[in-house]
Simulated assay, not measured.
Amino acid sequence: MDHDSDENLHSLRITARGAKAAIEIDGKRVDPGALSGYTLTHREGEPPQAVLYSGDYVDSVFEGLARVSVADLPDPGPAAAVFLSAIDAEELERSALARPDLGTGPHSLTQAMLTQLVEWARGL
Rank of each mutant, 00 (worst) to 15 (best):
K28E: 10
L117I: 05
D6T: 11
L9K: 03
D4E: 05
H3T: 09
L35M: 12
S85L: 11
K28N: 06
I23T: 02
K20S: 10
G103E: 09
D75N: 13
W120R: 05
G77T: 15
P74R: 12
G64C: 02
G103I: 04
L12C: 11
E7I: 11
R17W: 01
V51D: 12
V61R: 07
V82S: 10
E119T: 05
A112S: 14
R122D: 09
K20P: 00
V70G: 04
S5F: 02
A22Q: 13
D4A: 05
E93D: 10
R17V: 12
V82E: 12
E90Q: 15
V51W: 01
E44G: 04
G123R: 06
D101A: 12
R99C: 02
A81R: 15
P32E: 08
N8C: 06
R67P: 00
R29W: 00
D59F: 03
S54V: 05
S11H: 14
R99G: 01
S11W: 10
R29N: 03
A79S: 11
A86W: 07
V30Q: 06
V118G: 05
Y53M: 12
G103L: 09
I87H: 07
T15Q: 12
S95F: 02
A96V: 08
W120I: 07
Y53T: 08
P47E: 01
L84S: 12
W120E: 01
V118F: 08
R99W: 07
I14F: 03
R29S: 08
A50W: 04
V82R: 15
S54L: 13
D59E: 14
S54M: 08
A98V: 09
D4R: 06
G77S: 14
P106N: 13
L73G: 09
G27D: 02
L9P: 02
L65Y: 04
Y38S: 02
F62L: 01
D6F: 11
S69E: 13
G55S: 12
I25A: 03
D6K: 09
L117G: 04
A22N: 11
V70P: 01
D101H: 07
L52K: 06
L117H: 02
S5P: 00
G45T: 00
D72S: 14
V58P: 00
R43D: 11
T110Y: 13
H107D: 15
A89L: 13
L92H: 14
V70C: 06
P48Y: 02
L40P: 04
F62D: 01
G77V: 14
R13M: 07
I87F: 10
R99N: 09
L109N: 05
Y53E: 01
H3P: 00
D75T: 09
A79T: 11
S85G: 15
G105L: 12
P48D: 00
L102M: 11
T15L: 11
S108H: 12
T104Q: 14
P47W: 03
L73C: 06
T110E: 15
V30R: 04
L52E: 04
R67D: 03
G103H: 02
A71L: 08
I23W: 06
Y38D: 00
S60R: 12
H42T: 08
G123A: 07
L73I: 10
L92P: 15
D75P: 06
Q116G: 01
L35Y: 06
A71V: 12
Y57C: 06
S5D: 09
R29K: 13
A71D: 07
P32S: 08
L73M: 10
A112L: 05
I23N: 03
S5K: 02
N8H: 09
G103F: 08
L117P: 01
R13K: 13
R94K: 15
